[in-house]
Design a binder for these strands. Structure first.
Lengths: 208, 208
DNA sequence: CACCGGTGTGGACGCTGTCAACATGCGATC
DNA sequence: GATCGCATGTTGACAGCGTCCACACCGGTG
């Protein structure tokens, strides 16, 4: 335990912890540098020895949120029991979406902070990033022959958009009052729609 | 012209106009009561004769945003030329989505303000409300025989989520840097996916 | 003409983020 | 082992914010 190292404690970590706690309870607006400093028993401005400005502190909370999001998605991924390749790949895509919304609903404060300060444009190939996880799942869906390769491009943005929009509408958005039961049914219907949209061969996508 | 009626002008309208202008240029954070008062040449606190608090002023901007959103959706609706009922209903749903994103990208500030203060839970039956417009389009899709009635429930939330999520990710979100061309293609792909998901008969939605 | 109430003003309080100057004490150096 | 430097923490200040209160104005009503 290297708790009380320097002058007082290891302030940086203490502030980060307090910031995450505050964000969980009161969302993005609950993150005030002065109040956090006060809450860890240190005078204002001390925080500025460890964080360039408020945004840097928010960034740390965003990182924590991102980690939580990944964890929630991983948890759902782990619950997939199907072994038949196609069924498994489809279930895994749905699991990712469910985990995403799980996190948003369980940690609305962190979720909101995360998307006011998302750690820069994801390249989509990092498997420890939500976007990377999604891409991997979609690639897998192609590999097992369920997703038409012609529909692969843009599928990532489509899936992310659907799930993200659902979360945003339900967390502080216009659908915030939706009863949990209805909400869960709507989510299931949405994920089923995506599954359906991607399981169909391209010839039926003729427009006009 | 009833411009200078009372003491000075009709302050309420002047403040509302200034607020909308500020929101357009600098988003939700650009809405400061004191600054708005200053910008219309009146001392701070004067605004409090016309708006209970800052939230009330933000609400006015949100209303303006909502109106703009409806206008953008209506515009796209008006561009639909198809006459064959099924093709027309499908095109109208896609048009609504396109209009929604049009507005978000053209007026990111208003769009963001709108969704930090959405005028209370929409009941979905008002045809001058975006959610109502969406529901009407979906009902129409059922009426013309394209959308399976069994899939109608939840379709509203699915469509709204997809389009809203796309807008949020592209406006200040992780996908804010997406090149416009790629962005437009992704949107088209998403709308096509929704169209596909709803045009398919239910028997293919068997899971597991 | 007097007055009353809707409207605008000025001042104050407490909160915020951030900068500058000052104090403190750990750890490396002589 | 004493000393010095630098990272760390403190105090004070400034500008900006939202909001409350007391006061000033002025137009329409009695």
């Amino acid at each position: 335990m290297t708790a009380t190292r320097y002058h007082h404690g290891n302030l940086r970590q203490a502030l980060a912890d307090a910031a995450v706690a505050a964000a969980r309870e009161r969302g993005p607006d609950g993150l005030a540098v002065r109040e956090l400093a006060r809450s860890v028993g240190v005078s204002h401005n001390a925080a500025y020895r460890h964080f360039a400005d408020r945004d840097a502190l928010v960034g740390v909370v965003a990182d924590a949120g991102l980690a939580g999001l990944v964890t929630a998605m991983d948890r759902r991924l782990g619950e997939v029991t199907a072994t038949e390749p196609v069924a498994r790949a489809r279930a895994r895509l749905t699991a990712l979406g469910t985990g995403y919304v799980d996190f948003a609903l369980a940690e609305p404060g962190l979720f909101q902070v995360l998307f006011t300060a998302y750690p820069d444009p994801p390249d989509g190939s990092d498997a420890s990033d939500p976007y990377g996880m999604l891409n991997a799942a979609l690639d897998d869906l192609v590999a097992v022959g369920y997703l038409d390769p012609a529909l692969r491009e843009g599928a990532d943005v489509t899936c992310w958009s659907a799930v993200h929009g659902f979360a945003m509408l339900c967390v502080g958005g216009p659908l915030r009052q939706l009863p949990p039961v209805v909400r869960d049914q709507a989510l299931a219907a949405m994920l089923a729609s995506l599954d359906r949209a991607y399981g169909v061969r391209a010839e039926s996508s003729r427009a006009e």
